[in-house]
Design a protein around this nucleic acid. Structure first.
Length: 229
DNA sequence: GCCAACGTTGGC
DNA sequence: GCCAACGTTGGC
């Protein structure tokens, strides 16, 4: 059963012991992933004071996938939003993530949370549509498959190193929101303090699974109604 | 195809 | 545990 492969970060060599904990350990740099998964608080009644027991959850995400043919160890990892729509139940497992920070975000995802489906490494990079999480993190089987471009010989069946979630197509964006447009807003917002001032797409550009704040998510949705800038 | 950004590896 | 070399991501 062929399954789509999102071409995501990293190689199967990533070393480092699995970290349990909400947070994998990432090489020094400040900015632990957990810190960026800020509670964005979509529910009106809970206040910033709410204790969340260290369980800060982002409500929204951005997932990168490559919509154009791309060989990785001889396997085409192309997977566009059209490919997602063509899947049974318009659902796919998001396998192949081999970066600890990205993996930890996958593990933080909750049922029904929404994510932007982003087309990367292609002619026109940008946000193509919306998907939602329909199965929370479970072991990524491709880490054990020798023929997979994402095979990781260092991962053991009894303590899988890598995780994946299942996502389902929700809808296309009313218009394709290009990276260029997002970047224009990001630059402007850095000056004005607008909603995209810290967007991970620019501050952590290589992350293939990223959290978005409520403000970022809402602002990007509002762009659908406007003329491309 | 180039190359900047940045995560990972491994020598010390 | 530092850090230079290396490899990958991904825009352009």
């Amino acid at each position: 059963m062929p399954r789509p492969r999102k071409r995501l970060a990293g190689t199967a060599e990533a070393a480092g012991p699995d970290n349990k904990g909400p947070e994998g350990k990432r090489p020094k740099t400040k900015n632990p992933a957990g810190a960026s998964v800020k509670v964005v608080n979509s529910s009106p009644q809970k206040t910033s004071a709410s204790k969340n027991c260290g369980k800060n959850l982002s409500s929204y995400w951005l997932l990168k996938s490559e919509p154009e043919s791309q060989l990785e160890k001889g396997v085409d990892v192309k997977f566009s939003i059209e490919d997602l729509k063509a899947q049974p139940k318009q659902t796919t497992c998001w396998d192949g993530v081999r970066n600890y920070q990205a993996r930890n975000f996958l593990r933080a995802m909750k049922l029904e949370q929404e994510a932007f489906f982003y087309h990367s490494n292609c002619k026109e990079p940008g946000i193509a549509g919306l998907v939602k999480i329909v199965k929370e993190a479970y072991p990524d089987h491709t880490q054990f498959e020798k023929n997979s471009p994402h095979y990781d010989p260092s991962s053991k069946e009894d303590s899988p190193k890598w995780s994946m979630v299942d996502v389902q197509f929700v809808r296309m964006m009313k218009r394709f929101i290009t990276l260029a447009e997002l970047k224009t807003h990001h630059q402007a917002h850095k000056e004005t303090g607008g909603p995209l001032k810290n967007m991970a797409l620019f501050s952590h550009q290589r992350l293939s699974v990223q959290p978005l704040t409520q403000e970022e998510f809402d602002f990007i949705l509002s762009l659908e109604e406007k003329e491309p800038s």
